[in-house]
């Protein structure tokens, strides 16, 4: 699986700016039916999920080509009495971009926020199952949540630069870890801003407030702030949903670049975006992982007809 193939997927399945037509599957190669159950017909898996049945996720063998940076095993989550995640098992490959797609309320953001335990901030959250980052079970008793969040960065849907200078924003993480040396902070600030493709735009106004930046610049600043502390994993929760197409394009380029150094997990509602930036794609529905495989397979050759219908825009 490589980026070139991902780009092919874009060309083949989705024409940018032109939503896929329901009646034009002719250009697609014939689908190989290797679903988990031979009796499975179109819609039956989603129907079964709606009826509350437990279903087996269709996880392609290709996801095991890389060691897992985040290994989710039988993970379940409740908000009070509402069960938001049903036995999700998903090895997220190291050093790759994994996209999570699915209709609103399918639990993809919940799953994303489980990885760095941001769900702890919500009242009444309970979990079972295991979620490993590296070797460590994030939900084991006595785990230091702070140290997990240092290893797993997060970029939010709405950019949230702090009301302080650009420089102070970027080095915020380093400072809270106790770094005081000015030269170290400056060096890290420049490196992070360069990685976030923001350095040239802000290098002359590092001392100015971050609030004055444009929406796209703010989001790239938030990415710089996250990668300044060298996380192993970067979680992105619909990072482009509030941005215009040009800013979105810049963020997507950025995602492909930083993915060379770390593992990126991105939640998106935009199928084209998932196809463009990700190596692997997970399709979720009502708290279940339905299908998980390489982005090319999910978009061109999914095991389940439901997945194909969703990613081509004929459902959800």
């Amino acid at each position: 699986m490589n980026v070139e193939m991902t780009k092919d997927v874009v060309r083949m399945t989705v024409t940018p700016g032109n939503p896929p037509q329901p009646s034009s599957p002719t250009a697609r190669p014939p689908r190989v039916a290797v679903g988990p159950s031979p009796a499975m017909r179109a819609g039956s898996v989603l129907q079964a999920i709606r009826e509350g049945a437990s279903v087996t996720s269709a996880v392609h063998p290709s996801v095991h080509a890389h060691p897992a940076a985040v290994d989710i095993r039988g993970f379940e989550l409740w908000y009070g009495s509402f069960k938001a995640l049903h036995s999700v098992s998903m090895p997220i490959p190291r050093g790759r971009v994994t996209a999570m797609v699915g209709p609103s309320g399918c639990g993809k953001s919940t799953l994303l926020r489980s990885i760095n335990r941001m769900n702890d901030l919500v009242d009444g959250v309970r979990t079972t199952g295991a979620l490993h980052v590296g070797e460590h079970d994030v939900y084991a008793g006595g785990v230091d949540v702070i140290s997990i969040r240092r290893r797993v960065g997060m970029v939010f849907q709405k950019s949230n630069p702090f009301p302080m200078s650009i420089f102070d924003n970027v080095v915020y993480g380093l400072r809270i870890y106790g770094e005081r040396r000015k030269d170290v902070l400056q060096e890290c600030c420049e490196r992070a801003l360069r990685q976030a493709a923001l350095w040239d735009e802000v290098k002359d106004r590092l001392k100015q407030s971050a609030i004055g930046l444009s929406g796209g610049q703010q989001q790239r600043l938030c990415i710089a702030r996250s990668i300044a502390v060298n996380p192993e994993v970067l979680l992105m929760d619909e990072p482009c949903s509030a941005l215009d197409p040009i800013a979105t394009q810049k963020i997507e380029e950025l995602i492909r670049e930083i993915a060379e150094k770390l593992t990126v997990v991105i939640v998106t509602h935009n199928m084209q975006q998932a196809a463009r930036v990700s190596n692997y794609t997970a399709f979720m529905y009502l708290g279940r992982l339905v299908e998980f495989g390489s982005t090319a397979d999910i978009f061109q050759n999914p095991q389940l007809p439901e997945t194909e219908q969703y990613v081509t825009g004929r459902f959800g």
Partner: peptide
């Protein structure tokens, strides 16, 4: 709240 989230997500206490 996004300020608090952003800070906590960076590993701040």
């Amino acid at each position: 709240a996004s300020f608090r989230e952003g800070s906590l997500a960076l590993g701040a206490t």
